[in-house]
Simulated assay, not measured.
Amino acid sequence: MSETALGSERSAGRESDVSTENTMRSRAGENRLKLWLLLGANRLIVTGVLAALVFVAFLLAGVFLLPPFTQTVASGDVLDTLFTTMISALITGVTLVVTISQLVISQENGPLGDQRERMSNALDFRTYTGELIGTTTPADPSAFLASIVEASAKRAEKLRGLVDGLDSGSDAEEDLKREVDEFVDSLVENADVVGDRLDGATFGSFDVLHAALDYNYSWKMFQTERLRDVYADDIDENVRRALDDLHSSLAMFGPAREHVKTLYFQWALIDLSQLIVYAAVPALVVAAVMATFVDTATFTGATFGVTDLLWVTAAAFTVTVVPFLLFIAYVLRVATIAKRTLAIGPLILRDSQR
């Protein structure tokens, strides 16, 4: 093959930018507030915000819609119908949540052989990780992920040192050095940021998984493969081995993150089940009281120009929907994480990353 043809082939295989946005927010191309609401915010805070919106919406509807709220209640069994329906919905919803919890817990149950296989797979992966990081694999999830991230940064620096040692002076080699330097800078910077966020993060909160989601390992795996293939004729065996080692460390991060993600999903769903059960008891009591004892004669005054009956009804309705709002808050986070981690390995699904 002629030099011109070879150069054209290399140019076709190169990317104009070997680095990319590393944080999930930057890769998603969405605003900070939306991602904070979907992922970063405490789920109880999100539930409180949703409850406040429900309360305000109900209150405004009662104030501005005709006929007046008091007249509507007086003309029929509105409160009885509304809160009797909510009692049925609460009982059905709590039963469904308990069923979901049983499904999550059932994944941990199984015969002795299955449990032995799970243990064997876990120990095998810890052995591989120990070989990768050169020391005992940490037991803490945040330290476990951080050790893999740190190992990939060290291997990237080793790659840069080997590439800098090449001295043929060809144009292709200069391109390789430039791309590797840019790639390693991006990887090390990303690894430092993620490592700092993982340091001290406690599993059970979202902090561990949130930090792991910001390590853009899939793009980095693709770049190691591309550099190895495009510059196959310009690198020696040491550089090729360094690229393979870096690729292996990045490939280890994928299943490690997925394992932590799976554990977090189970943890979050169990937390959700407990919170819904806790919230369902006062919600049932409030709904029963409103359906049985409250009518237009119970609250006859007004506060800030709004009838007390409307204030009480809006508050009572908000309390009865809290279990459902908890479900929404948790599902928003779990569904968002699942959507953004559908692919494992060097597959880019979002247009903003291509």
Rank of each mutant, 00 (worst) to 15 (best):
G40V: 03
Q71I: 08
T70C: 06
V98P: 00
V54R: 05
V46K: 00
Q102Y: 13
P111G: 14
I91S: 11
L37E: 04
A41C: 12
M86K: 07
T95D: 10
M86S: 08
L90T: 02
L35R: 08
P68M: 03
A74D: 08
G62S: 05
E108R: 15
T99H: 10
A57W: 08
F83Q: 01
A57R: 12
I45V: 09
E30H: 12
E108A: 14
M86Q: 08
T47A: 00
T47V: 00
I45Y: 12
A89S: 09
V63Y: 10
R32V: 12
V97T: 11
A52K: 04
I45H: 07
L82D: 05
E30D: 07
W36V: 04
P67A: 09
I45P: 07
A89I: 14
I45G: 05
P68E: 15
T92V: 15
L53G: 01
W36Q: 03
L53R: 00
F64V: 11
L96V: 15
E30W: 13
D77N: 15
P111K: 11
N109T: 15
L50N: 00
P68A: 04
S101M: 10
R43W: 10
G76T: 11
L59S: 03
L60T: 11
L103W: 10
I105C: 01
P67D: 15
V56A: 03
L35S: 04
L39H: 04
A41E: 08
L44P: 11
N109C: 05
D80A: 15
V104Q: 01
S101K: 11
P111M: 14
T92G: 13
T84D: 05
P67C: 07
V97M: 09
S88T: 14
A41Y: 06
N109S: 13
A74C: 07
G93T: 13
L66Y: 13
I100N: 04
V63A: 01
L65H: 09
R43Q: 12
G48Q: 02
T84V: 10
E30N: 12
I87K: 07
R43L: 07
F58R: 09
N31R: 14
S106G: 08
